[in-house]
Computed example of a mutant assay.
Amino acid sequence: MSFLGFLLLGLIAGAIAKAILPGKQGGGWFVTLLLGVVGALLGGWIGGALFGVNLQEFFSLATWALAIGGSIIVLLIYGAIVGRRKTA
């Protein structure tokens, strides 16, 4: 997958993850892009390590599921860190 395809996947996966998670997550589209790309990397790494999934296809269901799952994990971690910082 090309770099631009990976960025697009990360942006969309981050937006879907934000829509799935309840409550408000801070950050605009740039933070969504960054967290989505990090989440896609995390999901790809987990998928490759645990299930042997190859993430070369943009339109593969496994690619999207792992990217969205990784983005949800990253958004939960981000929310926990930012949430602690706001209350402290």
Rank of each mutant, 00 (worst) to 15 (best):
Leu11Glu: 04
Leu11Ser: 13
Ile12Val: 15
Ile12Lys: 00
Ile12Asp: 03
Ala13Glu: 06
Gly14His: 04
Gly14Lys: 02
Ile16His: 01
Lys18Phe: 01
Lys18Thr: 09
Ala19Gln: 11
Ile20Pro: 01
Ile20Trp: 05
Pro22Gln: 14
Gly23Ile: 10
Gly23Cys: 11
Lys24Arg: 14
Lys24Gly: 13
Lys24Ile: 08
Lys24Asn: 11
Lys24Leu: 14
Lys24Trp: 07
Gly26Lys: 12
Gly26Asp: 10
Gly26Asn: 13
Gly27Thr: 10
Gly27Val: 10
Gly27Trp: 01
Gly28Gln: 13
Gly28Met: 09
Trp29Ile: 15
Phe30Pro: 03
Val31Phe: 01
Val31Cys: 00
Val31Gly: 00
Thr32Ile: 08
Thr32Phe: 02
Thr32Arg: 04
Leu33Thr: 12
Leu33Gly: 07
Leu33Phe: 11
Leu33Ala: 11
Leu34Pro: 03
Leu34Val: 14
Leu35His: 12
Gly36Glu: 05
Val37Ala: 09
Val37Gly: 08
Val38Thr: 15
Val38Met: 06
Val38Ile: 15
Gly39Pro: 11
Gly39Met: 07
Ala40Ile: 09
Ala40Thr: 10
Ala40Gly: 13
Ala40Glu: 02
Leu41Phe: 13
Leu41Tyr: 09
Leu42Gly: 06
Leu42Glu: 04
Gly43Arg: 04
Gly43Met: 03
Gly44Tyr: 00
Trp45Ser: 15
Gly47Arg: 00
Gly47Ile: 02
Gly47Trp: 00
Gly47Pro: 00
Gly48Ile: 03
Gly48Ser: 08
Gly48Arg: 04
Leu50Pro: 00
Val53Met: 12
Val53Asn: 02
Val53Tyr: 08
Leu55Phe: 14
Leu55Met: 14
Gln56Trp: 03
